[in-house]
Design a protein around this nucleic acid. Structure first.
Lengths: 143, 143
DNA sequence: GCCTGCAATGATACTGAGTATCACTACAAG
DNA sequence: CTTGTAGTGATACTCAGTATCATTGCAGGC
């Protein structure tokens, strides 16, 4: 599931949006491309002491707006980011190790349409996060 | 949908959990019982100048743990609380006026079971928030 | 009725996540 | 080579919530 497939370079996408390819932005993009399991903003800031907080957060925001990143929430609401590969998908987050994985379920799309009949008003978006104990953590627990 | 039905007194629930019924706690519980559309912690703090931040947050936390409150997230991740009436349900949040409503869809439960087959590991929880433009706001927009 | 102990309180200071400000830098285009 | 502006980073701020800790106030035992 976590295949490092041919992912478009986030930096290229930023350039497509009219933003400059600068050294700090490339540094941020480079480091978070290597974070397969999601990351927090402070984590990136700590990893790049030469780069200011503001720049890291700005770059993250640009990538969010460009749809390259997803912002998720842990059960307690703490934010976590992850690179998004596919268009529309949802995330599973392991509550033990924090590993983020994605899934795409067509039931979900049908569900949203079904809910549309139940609620008064127009659905404009949704947030779905599934919290799991991942397979790896399960075997650790049982051993 | 937003019926002020016979709701168990949150204070009584806290007492059942072994917590004292104190004046500050009653004040907090009283005020948030009147907030049909959800509320933020700071809102409560502002409404009760005589009561300390810590006490308000503590009371909210106790109520969350007791299952009397739900903590939701707006699209930007900003937290919002709402009293929960029924056991398991989900929320719609109007992105214009912030009104919180609840729905319960059996499809959701079936969906969770279906997802269980897709993901590796055990599902331990989920978060689902549906963002809407509510009926009232829709008529305002169109007028 | 009065100790007394502990739960609860509130002031305050802190953390964590993110934004605003603003002087400065570094480019890219003319 | 100038110059305009996007981008940067230091810093201070907001917002949400927690930690600390001295003080208060009840509830139960005598």
């Amino acid at each position: 599931m976590t295949t490092a497939k041919t992912r478009p370079d986030p930096m290229a996408i930023l350039e497509d949006h009219g933003y400059r390819s600068t050294a700090p932005r490339r540094a941020v993009v480079d480091i978070l491309r290597r974070k397969e399991d999601g990351f927090t903003a402070e984590e990136i800031i700590d990893d790049l002491p030469g780069i200011g907080r503001a720049t890291v957060y700005r770059t993250i925001r640009l990538l969010l707006e460009a749809g390259v990143l997803c912002k998720l929430a842990l059960p307690d609401g703490a934010p976590k980011y992850t690179l998004s590969t596919v268009e529309h998908h949802h995330h599973t987050i392991c509550v033990r190790c924090g590993t983020v994985d994605t899934f795409r379920d067509t039931t979900m799309e049908r569900l949203m349409r079904a809910i549309g009949d139940d609620v008064s008003g127009d659905i404009v978006g949704h947030r779905i996060e599934v919290y799991v104990t991942c397979g790896r953590c399960l075997t650790q627990v049982r051993s």
